[in-house]
Amino acid sequence: MVLVGLNLRPALSSLAPLLARVQQDTGLSPSAIGALTTLPVLCLGLFAPLAPRLSRQYGPERALSLGLVVITSGLLLRWQGSPLALYAGTLLVGAGIGVSGALLPALVKRELPRGADLMTGVYTMALCLGGALGAGLAIPLSDLLGGWTRSLAAWSLLAMAALIAWELYMPRTAATPRMAGDPGTGMTRGLLRQPLAWQVALLMGTQSSLAYIVFGWLPTLLMQRGIGEAEAGLLMGMSVMVQLISALLAPWLARFGRDQRPALLLVLASTASGLWILLMADTSLRYLGALLLGLGQGGNFSLALTLIVLRSADSRLAGRLSGLAQGGGYALAALGPLSVGIMLDLQAPITAIAWLLMGIAAAAASFAWFAGRQRQLCFDADDNVITRCAPRRGSR
């Protein structure tokens, strides 16, 4: 699971530092480049809801293998370098990551039910490490391998390694096709009637919107402030690398309170502070801004995934809530990088972009206040999805 998590961000974070070179070589307009940064996030939202269906049809392990195959194929297709191949490869990458990312929380809930929150932090840490490697190595790999297309395609080797390891060591369970009268029938409709499910999904969407704006546009925004291409990529890589710390520690920190609201608000405040410093403060503070941004965003994503596990009474609900929260959340998140791309195309001042990001952070904080309460989705005696007060840790 950790090795799989390592592959769910390099395909996204490795593109942003290379956007200037991609635009120069392909002749794509700023709007087309903006669409390229939005496409994978939109695909995450469109394909994540397919994860429960693929899990029932093939088993969650085989479905995750399929996701890794699609990621590998998309990365290899980017090698062609043409605009068509670039968009098609990015679409496949987004689809594979959407399915794989939605499957992992349910697998964690099933395999490690008592330590699911801490295990979520561990594989989220691996996910953040993959993002940091993608951002930090994009420019060096392009220079070393002789072009940005090879730099993007090189990450297929890591995806192949994860696929081989997963096939060798994954747990083995049979597929469970849905039958008439199955108590899980109508589970998604039941979830959609629960405000808690929407609160988790909206939190996932707003915090992910900030994350994918950073993945897609932070180097470009920093370069507009006079920071060089290499240092802009380094700052983004540093920010993502720092996420390793908070991704692992945030679920542990959340255990100290009655609920997860204090931890969520703390990491969101760190994210907003880091973005404001990077975009609005004196550039001499840029490394402090990258540090605060990384600490905040690592904790944001780790806690958002942890909430999927904590707000679900069993692995079936965790799988459905994961598909709903990540599907709907990523579809919402796609509006973030798209909006920034449009604003840059219209030559909006960086001040306006900074205020947009503050507004998204404020919205995330409001959803965190509700999603962070100690509530849980479960089945009642008639197999209907309901919301109850979550049992205390250690109780059954």
Score class of each variant (00 low, 15 high):
residue 12 L to Y: 12
residue 14 S to I: 02
residue 14 S to K: 07
residue 15 L to E: 02
residue 16 A to F: 00
residue 17 P to H: 06
residue 17 P to C: 02
residue 19 L to H: 05
residue 19 L to P: 04
residue 20 A to W: 04
residue 21 R to Y: 00
residue 21 R to M: 03
residue 22 V to N: 06
residue 22 V to I: 15
residue 23 Q to C: 10
residue 24 Q to C: 10
residue 25 D to I: 08
residue 25 D to R: 15
residue 26 T to M: 12
residue 27 G to L: 09
residue 28 L to E: 09
residue 28 L to T: 09
residue 30 P to H: 05
residue 31 S to Q: 12
residue 31 S to A: 12
residue 31 S to V: 10
residue 32 A to G: 11
residue 33 I to Y: 08
residue 34 G to C: 04
residue 35 A to G: 14
residue 37 T to M: 14
residue 38 T to I: 03
residue 39 L to C: 04
residue 41 V to A: 11
residue 43 C to A: 11
residue 45 G to N: 07
residue 46 L to P: 01
residue 47 F to D: 01
residue 47 F to H: 00
residue 48 A to G: 10
residue 49 P to Q: 06
residue 49 P to C: 09
residue 49 P to T: 01
residue 52 P to C: 00
residue 54 L to A: 06
residue 58 Y to W: 14
residue 63 A to F: 00
residue 64 L to D: 08
residue 64 L to N: 00
residue 65 S to N: 08
residue 69 V to C: 13
residue 70 V to N: 11
residue 71 I to P: 09
residue 72 T to D: 01
residue 75 L to Q: 12
residue 78 R to F: 08
residue 79 W to H: 15
residue 81 G to D: 14
residue 81 G to E: 15
residue 81 G to H: 14
residue 82 S to M: 13
residue 84 L to W: 13
residue 85 A to Q: 14
residue 92 L to N: 10
residue 93 V to M: 15
residue 93 V to I: 15
residue 94 G to I: 08
residue 95 A to V: 10
residue 95 A to F: 06
residue 96 G to R: 05
residue 96 G to Y: 02
residue 97 I to T: 06
residue 97 I to M: 05
residue 97 I to E: 05
residue 100 S to G: 06
residue 100 S to M: 01
residue 101 G to C: 03
residue 102 A to T: 09
residue 102 A to C: 07
residue 103 L to N: 05
residue 103 L to Q: 04
residue 103 L to A: 04
residue 105 P to M: 06
residue 109 K to A: 14
residue 112 L to A: 13
residue 112 L to T: 11
residue 115 G to N: 15
residue 116 A to Q: 07
residue 116 A to T: 02
residue 117 D to R: 13
residue 117 D to I: 04
residue 121 G to F: 02
residue 121 G to Y: 02
